[in-house]
């Protein structure tokens, strides 16, 4: 799970930390990734690598549909537009029963098959696979930060007007950032679907979107280690609470309360998060 969330938070960081775009639509893309993965594996019978490519391209293309209209807006309006898309995608996943089986979910998703005959089952091989992907995404992100593209994004984040004045196409850059980050999120959708082997729309609702965003904010934005710390933290905290010995029903709510408190305190005292370098504006 940590690896899945590292991919999620790292790619969300590309938006929040690098481009100063708060998106509440991340869970929708995560869901699109997961459902596309199921489509590729169960209907088209692809093996893992083609599925991966299919999911990345598919999620990116679909995200373009979201990115293009919403990125013409700024500030609150952008957040609202992504929120709107989040709810529309959720409603479609939930109600288009013929295709997605709606609230019943899709059970029995096969384990990933690598190179024709190696089937990834069990915890350890799966851990290795997801770690490879997570490391891949993080190192890509590392390269991206120091590439001309990454620097241009930072310029947009720090001063949109100046970036535009020196001849950068700000909207195009934002759309690229959104699409690239969505492609990465698609990977985590794929990993989730094949790991849990059962998906239903409630895993990709607004709460999940808020959860992803708060993981990024708690960890910190704008660099590599921030989102990773955030992901580790939000995944490990429930385990810690279980360790303390609280009953499950209380622990779930208590965990949320801790996240809420952390967000408020961090926003007040340290808006760049636990380990981030860029303070939200």
């Amino acid at each position: 799970m940590i690896n899945i969330y590292i991919i999620l938070t790292t790619s969300t960081n590309l938006l929040v930390g690098m481009t100063n775009l708060l998106s509440l639509g991340q869970a929708a893309l995560y869901g699109i990734g997961a459902y596309l993965a199921v489509l590729a594996m169960m209907v088209l019978n692809l093996s893992f690598i083609p599925t991966l490519i299919f999911v990345i391209i598919g999620t990116s293309l679909l995200s373009l549909l979201i990115a293009y209209p919403s990125l013409r807006l700024r500030g609150d309006y952008f957040v609202l537009a992504t929120l709107g898309f989040q709810l529309i995608v959720f409603t479609i996943l939930y109600n288009w029963v013929d295709v997605t089986r709606g609230p019943y979910g899709i059970p029995g998703i096969p384990s990933p098959i690598l190179f024709g005959d190696i089937v990834i089952t069990g915890i350890i091989p799966y851990l290795i696979l997801s770690s490879i992907l997570a490391v891949g995404v993080v190192s890509l992100f590392f390269k991206l930060i120091y590439s001309p593209f990454g620097r241009a994004l930072k310029a947009v984040r720090d001063d949109e007007l100046s970036a535009e004045a020196i001849g950068r196409n700000v909207t195009a850059l934002k759309i690229w950032a959104f699409v690239v980050s969505s492609g990465f999120i698609g990977i985590s959708g794929l990993l989730y679907a094949s790991y849990v082997s059962y998906i239903d729309p409630t895993s990709f609702n607004l709460d999940e979107a808020i959860f992803i965003l708060s993981a990024v904010i708690i960890g910190g934005t704008g660099n590599i280690k921030g989102p990773i710390i955030g992901a580790v933290f939000v995944v490990i905290l429930p385990e810690l609470l279980r360790f303390v010995g609280l009953p499950d029903s209380v622990a779930a709510n208590l965990r949320q309360i801790i996240y809420g408190l952390m967000i408020i305190i961090l926003m007040r005292l340290r808006p760049q998060g636990l380990a981030g370098e860029y303070a939200l504006r």
């Binding site: 957040v79 965003l213 708060s214 809420g260 967000i263 926003m267 808006p271 504006r281």
Partner: peptide, 13 residues
């Protein structure tokens, strides 16, 4: 944005 995120925090709590 910071105020909005704090608001989300209050809501969760």
């Amino acid at each position: 944005n910071i105020i909005m995120i704090s608001s989300i925090g209050i809501m969760i709590i």
